[in-house]
Design a protein around this nucleic acid. Structure first.
Length: 684
DNA sequence: CTAGGGTTAG
């Protein structure tokens, strides 16, 4: 801007400032300010200049000038305060608020409408309440809906919904903003039904919802999986013409996926002309929640191809997709993207990475990520603990548990699930019992079925069967899973009589429980009681019960290969059998003896051996060894059931003769086979 | 010359 040196009258100054605002140039305002100061007119233009600075985003420069002025208009105070709030300079905004009161300038309705947000952002409930009191004295609380809704928002953010409601009820003319603030407050504090009630009363009161209201109320519908209302509101959105507003569309998408209608979410998504980052992320999250992890990854790639950069939200969700189905290779690629965006140390991404590596059996890698997280929280620590628990590292898990307490973090119910599994898998029976006892006493944790299940497993596995039974008796409505886990403990310890007694209990509770039948036939088979096995199998057939077939899968070069016992559908079955034969010879030569007690059919020894031969994990391992070179130092397999004793023993030998690490995740935990032994110490 | 509410994560 060229400043004229001749014309220095007030009218010129005003128009110069206006020009600066139009061009959003802070440096130009500075020049104008210098010129005004030279001409001695500053006092008259102070407020105008500040207005100019603020409109151009120059909060710091505005403040500098503001402090030099001897007197400022109330409007200028208010502009300063709201601009500081808007620029997240909360402390300074509150400082200005206090300063104005000290200087005898009373806050007005404009001041209050901005300053309450400052208190909620600072987390200063007390100060907020004091300011609230002041607004009542000045008669501005109920008479001005801007002040009222700012207050409702503040109390909502503090979770003080009673106070939020009280203020809302006192406001004379309630509008859509006030109602929306109340709806959001309720829904963000788990009172979604209350949120819906507010919405209904708003509509009945003749106040029309807008895009903000729709966005918020749909979240409430999703949270309580209230599809009926969700659909009604979808209709209302169309009627009110907000169909193409991104935020309400995004909430609509989320609502459908939370209600399990992922196809409807996809339909909503298709109508977006230009989906933004939040929309893409919502879709990805929905897909993961609905078990469509692979689609989630495809969508993620599509998103990045459309040059939309992921943020921590997106990346942590994509990582969840990878960890929930243990896609380690994909996960590693996402990890690289996380690093590229500098989010390795982010609490959410960090926790998701820990979860990924933990669920893939790489506890060391999980720990490396974990140690880099800047701000640890309960979830990230739970993930680390769970990883230790699954891999049988009980002491490390307990160490983490203690560190959590040292950090002053409140352990939650998931924490205890991990800790108890850790104790169970590492055989830390006494420790587990003590921790279990302390949960309610010292941590005020509500005991869930999961906790009881962990304890039954812990006691049962270590042979304390009666204690385990007594514990189940204490549960109000013990479910089949608890009893079943006790029966499987009986199987491990060969307690046939007890198993039968418990079976009768279970079948009274759930007559057709297939798991129980399977377990019983297992215990009969392992003790050679074939007539009982046949009887059980007949009963099962008559009741049309089918057990889940054992399956093992292995991920090689991002392709998942699934194997079932004795199935030869794999295109490479010829190579698999050859590899298997060769392996068998090699492991037998170093001491492996097939253990046919794990064959649960009444067959001749020779045939039993063949049965063992073709267990799904053996097929998967043979395939993996055939497909990968010796340079691949470790092989990862996954199994839907628990590993059988013979396979466990066999894999130990295999790991020795091929000199590779074999990591196996079964339905209960990880086994790391290396150089002839397993990380579980044969206790599982 | 100034003011209030909304969309994505374990």
């Amino acid at each position: 801007m060229r400043l004229s040196s001749t014309k220095q009258d007030p009218v010129t100054f005003l128009s110069l400032i206006r020009q600066c605002i139009d061009t959003k140039s802070i440096s130009d305002i500075k020049k104008v300010q210098t010129q005004i100061m030279k001409s001695g007119f500053l006092l008259g233009f102070g407020d105008k200049l500040i207005d100019g600075y603020l409109k151009c985003g120059g909060v710091v420069d505005a403040r500098k000038l503001f402090d030099e002025l001897p007197k400022r208009h109330i409007v200028t105070w208010n502009s300063m305060i709201s601009a500081h709030i808007g620029h997240k300079r909360t402390k300074e905004a509150i400082g200005l608020y206090k300063k104005m009161i000290l200087e005898g300038v009373f806050p007005d309705e404009y001041t209050f409408s901005s300053i309450f947000k400052g208190f909620s952002e600072m987390g200063s409930l007390r100060e907020g309440q004091r300011a609230h009191g002041f607004s009542i004295i000045l008669g501005l609380e109920a008479s001005n809906v801007f002040v009222g809704s700012a207050l409702v928002d503040m109390y909502s953010k503090f979770g003080q919904m009673r106070d939020a409601k009280l203020v809302a009820d006192r406001v004379v003319k309630r509008d859509v903003v006030l109602f929306t603030a109340l709806i959001v407050g309720y829904s963000q504090h788990g009172e979604d039904r209350e949120a819906l009630a507010v919405f209904v009363s708003m509509i009945n009161g003749g106040v029309k919802a807008n895009e903000y209201t729709f966005a918020s109320i749909l979240i409430a519908c999703g949270n309580v999986e209230n599809l009926g209302n969700g659909k009604l509101i979808h209709g209302l959105i169309i009627k009110s013409g907000f169909e193409s507003v991104v935020a309400s569309q995004t909430s609509l998408l989320t609502m459908y996926s939370k209600c399990g209608l992922i196809d409807d979410s996809l339909k909503v998504f298709k109508r977006f002309a230009n989906p933004n980052l939040v929309t893409w992320t919502s879709l990805i999250v929905g897909l993961v929640q609905n078990g469509k992890e692979e689609v989630a990854l495809t969508k993620f790639r599509q998103m990045t191809r459309n040059s939309i950069n992921p943020n921590a939200f997106t990346l942590s969700s994509v990582l969840r997709a990878c960890s929930s189905i243990a896609m380690l290779e994909e996960g590693k690629q996402i990890h690289a993207i996380v690093t590229k965006h500098g989010l390795d140390r982010d609490t959410y991404c960090g926790a998701a990475l820990v979860d990924l590596y933990g669920k893939c059996g790489s506890t060391e890698m999980a720990r490396l990520v974990f140690d880099d997280i800047i701000e640890l929280d309960v979830v990230s620590m739970n993930s680390m603990m769970y990883s230790y628990a699954q891999n049988g590292l009980g002491h490390e898990a307990l160490e983490m548990f203690n560190r959590m307490k040292d950090l002053g973090l409140q352990p939650n119910d998931a924490t205890f699930v991990s800790v108890l599994i850790a104790c169970s898998n590492a055989g830390l029976v006494e420790e587990g019992c003590q921790i279990f006892a302390s949960m309610k006493k010292n941590h005020d944790i509500e005991l869930t079925r999961d906790h009881y299940a962990c304890m039954v497993d812990l006691l049962g596995r270590s042979g304390r069967l009666e204690e385990a039974e007594a514990l189940i008796e204490k549960v109000r409505n013990p479910d089949v899973v608890l009893w079943r886990s006790l029966i499987s403990a009986c199987v491990i310890h060969g307690e046939v009589k007890m198993a039968e007694r418990i079976k009768d209990k279970v079948l009274k509770l759930a007559p057709g429980d297939e798991g129980t039948h399977v377990l019983l036939s297992n215990i009969y088979a392992s003790t050679g009681n074939w007539s009982q096995v046949i009887e059980m199998k007949t009963t099962m057939r008559e009741m049309r019960l089918k057990k889940d077939p054992a399956m093992t899968w292995v991920d090689i070069d991002r392709e998942v290969h699934t194997f079932m016992a004795g199935d030869w559908y794999h295109p490479r079955s010829k190579e698999i059998v050859e590899t298997l034969k060769e392996l068998m010879e090699r492991v037998k030569s170093v001491g492996y003896v097939p253990d046919t007690q794990f064959v649960l059919h009444n067959l001749k020894e020779e045939k039993k051996e063949r049965c063992l031969y073709y267990h799904s994990e053996k097929l998967a391992i043979a395939f993996a060894l055939w497909r990968t070179s010796n340079k691949t130092t470790s092989i990862r397999i996954f199994k839907n059931l628990r590993v059988c004793g013979d396979c466990h023993n066999w894999i130990k030998y295999v790991s020795k003769v091929v000199n590779r690490e074999i990591i196996s995740r079964d339905s209960k935990r990880f086994h790391h086979f290396k150089n002839g032994s397993c990380s579980c110490g044969d206790y599982w």
